[in-house]
Simulated assay, not measured.
Amino acid sequence: MSRLPHLAQRLFNTPIAIQPQKAEIVVAALADRLGVTHMFRDGSMRALSQSSMLLADEDRAPDRAYQVVAGVAIIPVTGTLVQKLGTLRPFSGMTGYDGIRINFLAALNDPDVEAIVLDIDSPGGEVAGCFDLADAIYSARGQKPIHAVLNESAYSAAYAIASAADRITVPRTGGTGSIGVICMHVDLTKALSESGVVVTMIRYGAYKAEGSEFEALSKDALARMQADIDEMGELFCDTVARNRSIKASTVRGFEARTFLGASGVDAKLADAVAAPDAAFAELLGSL
Rank of each mutant, 00 (worst) to 15 (best):
T95W: 00
T95A: 09
T95F: 00
G96K: 01
G96L: 04
G96S: 05
Y97P: 12
D98Y: 12
D98F: 09
G99N: 04
G99H: 07
G99M: 08
G99P: 05
G99V: 02
I100W: 04
I100M: 06
R101C: 11
R101A: 14
I102Y: 00
I102T: 14
N103V: 08
N103F: 07
F104W: 08
F104A: 06
L105T: 11
L105V: 07
A106R: 15
A106Q: 09
A107I: 03
L108G: 07
L108H: 10
N109M: 10
N109W: 13
N109C: 10
N109R: 15
N109Y: 12
N109H: 15
D110M: 02
D110W: 05
P111A: 07
P111I: 06
P111F: 09
P111H: 05
D112I: 05
D112Y: 01
E114M: 10
E114L: 14
E114V: 06
A115E: 09
A115L: 04
V117S: 10
V117T: 10
L118A: 13
L118S: 11
I120F: 11
I120W: 09
D121K: 01
D121S: 14
D121C: 14
D121R: 05
S122A: 10
G124T: 09
G124L: 05
G124D: 08
G124K: 03
G124M: 02
E126F: 05
E126N: 12
E126H: 11
V127M: 10
G129M: 04
G129S: 05
C130Q: 03
C130N: 09
C130W: 01
F131L: 13
F131T: 02
F131G: 04
F131S: 02
D132L: 02
D132I: 07
L133E: 08
L133M: 04
A134G: 04
A134P: 07
D135N: 13
I137S: 05
I137N: 12
I137D: 02
Y138V: 11
A140H: 13
A140L: 13
R141W: 15
R141H: 13
R141N: 12
R141G: 15
R141M: 14
G142Y: 15
Q143T: 10
K144F: 10
K144H: 09
K144N: 11
P145M: 12
I146H: 14
H147S: 13
A148I: 06
V149W: 12
V149I: 15
L150S: 01
N151P: 00
N151A: 11
E152C: 12
S153Y: 10
S153N: 02
S153G: 01
A154M: 03
Y155I: 03
Y155W: 07
Y155M: 06
Y155A: 02
S156F: 03
S156E: 02
S156V: 01
S156Y: 00
A157N: 05
A157Y: 03
A157C: 03
A157V: 02
A158R: 03
Y159W: 07
A160S: 05
A160T: 00
I161M: 00
I161T: 00
A162Y: 01
A162P: 03
A162H: 00
A162I: 00
A164E: 02
D166Y: 00
D166R: 12
R167Q: 14
R167A: 00
R167S: 09
R167P: 01
R167C: 07
